[in-house]
Amino acid sequence: MSRLFTASDFDFALPPELIAQHPAPERSGSRLLDGRAATPVDRMFRDLHGLLEAGDLLVFNNTLVIKARLFGVKSTGGSVEALIERVLPGTQEVWAHMRASKSPKPGALVRFNDAFDAEVLGRCGPDNGLFHLRFPSDPFELLDAHGHVPLPPYITHEDSGDDVRRYQTVFAREPGAVAAPTAALHFDEGVLADLAARGVVTAHVTLHVGAGTFQPVRVETLAEHKMHSEWFQVPAETVAAIAETRARGGKVVAVGTTTLRALESAALGCALKAGARETDIFITPGFEFQVVDRLLTNFHLPKSTLMMLVSAFAGYEPVMDLYRHAIAEQYRFFSYGDAMLLARR
């Protein structure tokens, strides 16, 4: 009989000093824990090309992090902090998390950065937990001009010019994420060149990461957890590249949990299909993976859905052992931290 997991099974004690507040001086200068075999091996990220074979396929998430955090004031004078969760396609409207002493009512105006006014249209999203706002012009342009990098809540410094550059992948193309696909932050031009010389092929998906990625699971029974929804797209070229990789006996390597979620969502209940849609897939131990053979990922928050995902992929006990090893060896954790490479079990 398979084990029935609870949220507490994915808890662990992390010394606060291991939470990386800044990235490594060089992207590929971070550490890489090779967790594919029974005995973990401590490596450097720039050594990744030596761990893959010619004909393997690396799939990246090419989402681009927008400057989604805004500070403003209501017409009554009260301060407001907003985190834009989603820009609605083809409109000047957004969904946002908002923190204020008193929630603004529909019709109210909020002035952001003393530069533009946004109208509150009402509440929206899961359980009406978000605010529906209308901007006076293109939201992407306004955010780029007046917004702040949406650093995760466990990073304590204000965003800087270095964060603008480093909390973004070198291949980011499609704007819409409010959190970075952090496993991909380690790649630089040198690593990509080494992989190409090795004969490793690349492809991409797009999944716009939402703020819900940082939310812990607050119920013990996993089936009671309501997963946040995110938009993703898998191009036909990526589906074809995966089929070609399978035909030549190569491995499909997902760069990050967001890439894995997109690929496995596109294969739910059928063969892998190209296209775009929403996913609220919640991957827990017992999930049957259809697409991904290897996973490159950072170290995740205790009791998070991502801890559950990596445990489903590589096995609960092996993953918990890897985390104990990483803590003992003082790996750096979370978004600006180090990475590990896992095999599907």
Rank of each mutant, 00 (worst) to 15 (best):
L272Q: 11
A276P: 06
Q215I: 10
R248V: 13
V201L: 12
E220T: 13
A223H: 10
H204K: 09
L222E: 05
V200S: 01
T213P: 02
V201D: 12
V252I: 15
H208E: 11
L207D: 01
G190T: 14
H186A: 08
A276R: 13
V255K: 00
A271F: 05
T259L: 04
T221F: 05
V209K: 00
T257W: 05
V209M: 05
P216Q: 11
V200F: 03
A271V: 03
G249V: 07
A274C: 09
R248I: 11
E230S: 03
R277Y: 09
A211F: 11
D280V: 04
A236Q: 14
A243Q: 14
G210H: 04
D280C: 09
A196P: 08
T238M: 07
I281N: 06
F214R: 09
G275P: 10
H228S: 05
E220H: 10
A240C: 02
E237L: 11
E224T: 02
T182P: 04
A271K: 06
S265A: 12
R218W: 02
A223Y: 06
E278Q: 14
A236E: 15
E189T: 13
L195V: 07
G212C: 10
V191N: 01
A236N: 07
R246D: 07
S229H: 03
V217N: 02
G190S: 14
I281K: 06
F232I: 04
A223K: 13
G199I: 12
E237C: 11
L268S: 13
T238W: 06
G210L: 05
G250L: 10
A271D: 15
H228V: 05
V239S: 00
G210S: 08
L260G: 01
A274Q: 12
A274G: 13
E224F: 04
